[in-house]
């Protein structure tokens, strides 16, 4: 697809989609939404980039090697957060007693490791969606 209107409009709209996705991810423990919803918005913005500018340009912006590293690194981050609870003498995925900063209710930096786990889930969902789409439309 090589359409000027689609290219210009998606060049305007993609940064706002990504900012909204990051907003939904970072407010996952305070407001509706969370890791899966924000991550799928991020993945949808990258899919829009692929549809508007073609597979070669999108592969230059988001190569397969980087999305593979992000995907596996995010799940390793969640597992290591859980192991931190075991190392300090409590159960797997212990939050407050294991020494995470709980903060005040209603602020961004609060609720222990929940924002970090939500961020990891969002990165994993977004990179999984873009990897799936690139794998499907690739010419073999």
């Amino acid at each position: 697809m090589d359409d000027l209107i689609v290219k210009v409009i998606s060049k305007i709209i993609i940064p706002f989609m990504q900012v909204f996705g990051i907003f939904v991810i970072m407010h996952g423990h305070l407001s509706p939404g969370g890791g899966f919803a924000g991550g799928s918005i991020l993945g949808a913005s990258l899919i829009l980039l692929t549809l508007a500018f073609g597979l070669k340009e999108a592969k230059r912006k988001m190569p397969h090697t980087i999305s593979k590293i992000v995907e596996t690194g995010a799940i390793l981050l969640i597992v290591s957060l859980g192991l931190f609870g075991i190392l300090s003498g409590y159960n797997f995925l212990t939050n407050g007693e294991a020494g995470f900063h709980l903060g005040r209710t209603g602020e961004i930096i609060s609720a222990g490791f929940i924002p970090i786990a939500t961020l990891a889930i969002g990165l994993k969902v977004g990179s999984t969606l873009i990897t799936l789409f690139h794998t499907i439309i690739e010419e073999d």
């Binding site: 509706p32 919803a37 993945g43």
Partner: peptide, 10 residues
């Protein structure tokens, strides 16, 4: 939010 992003879009 999830249904609108995943179901209708992706």
């Amino acid at each position: 939010m999830t249904e609108a992003a995943v179901g209708a879009g992706v």
